[in-house]
Write a protein that binds this DNA or RNA. Structure first.
Lengths: 109, 109
DNA sequence: TCTACATAAGCAATATTCTACATAGCCACC
DNA sequence: GGTGGCTATGTAGAATATTGCTTATGTAGA
């Protein structure tokens, strides 16, 4: 099973203790319409577990209810696999040029 | 304008002198059904220019015709922007652990 | 009161990507 | 002359992501 880039980024944020939607948006720079569908899906697929905070707490802090997410063991495992795959961007080796130019050798002291 | 991860990866391969579909598939690990639609789109959007190789050349090399792509100036610029954005994965800073301090009211003067 | 702003979650429509397959050229081998 | 193995490009339909909008609660200011 393969994770796409934004999904990996969300899991990475969760691994760094960003535990609810808005916080994850801040940490990743991803917009809400990207983050929330991803949270849905990874919850459904048991890569995270989720729970709503208590109304008391939200009311005390004077804001809308938050939904908190946490990585499961499966989520942590997949994140690790995925991180290594997304290094590809910086690992592409330049293909050798067809013709080798006459390189003038610098005069070594 | 924003580039997605696979699109950035394809541009990155082009920047490293992988100049046609099959070669880009090898360099990136992306499947044909991802690479070819991307090449179409970035061609349409003028991030690359393209041309078919000559039949003579293909025949000489005893293989099917290749279609060659090259980054335009616009493509190079967008790639550079995009690469920096995709470092986010390794730049998320762990959020400090929440200390449960006794909310002692400070002594107001 | 009305507007603006901030936090928080989410949906609808569209765009992009992925999985699986399709087609074709060229060769070698039997 | 049929089959299999490369090389090379491509398509269809399902799954994902993105853009822009919406709902909801509360604060601050004109």
């Amino acid at each position: 099973m393969k994770l796409t880039y934004p999904t990996t980024l969300v899991l990475q944020a969760l691994a760094h203790r960003y535990h609810y939607g808005f916080d994850i948006m801040d940490a990743t720079g991803l917009p809400s319409g990207t983050v929330y569908p991803i949270l849905r899906r990874i919850d459904r697929e048991a890569l995270v577990s989720s729970r709503w905070e208590s109304e008391t707490e939200a009311h005390r802090a004077q804001r809308p209810l938050r939904r908190y997410y946490e990585l499961t063991a499966a989520g942590e495992r997949l994140l690790a696999e995925s991180l290594s795959r997304y290094r590809a961007l910086h690992e592409i080796v330049p293909r050798a040029r067809r013709k080798i130019r006459p390189t003038r050798r610098p005069v070594t002291p």
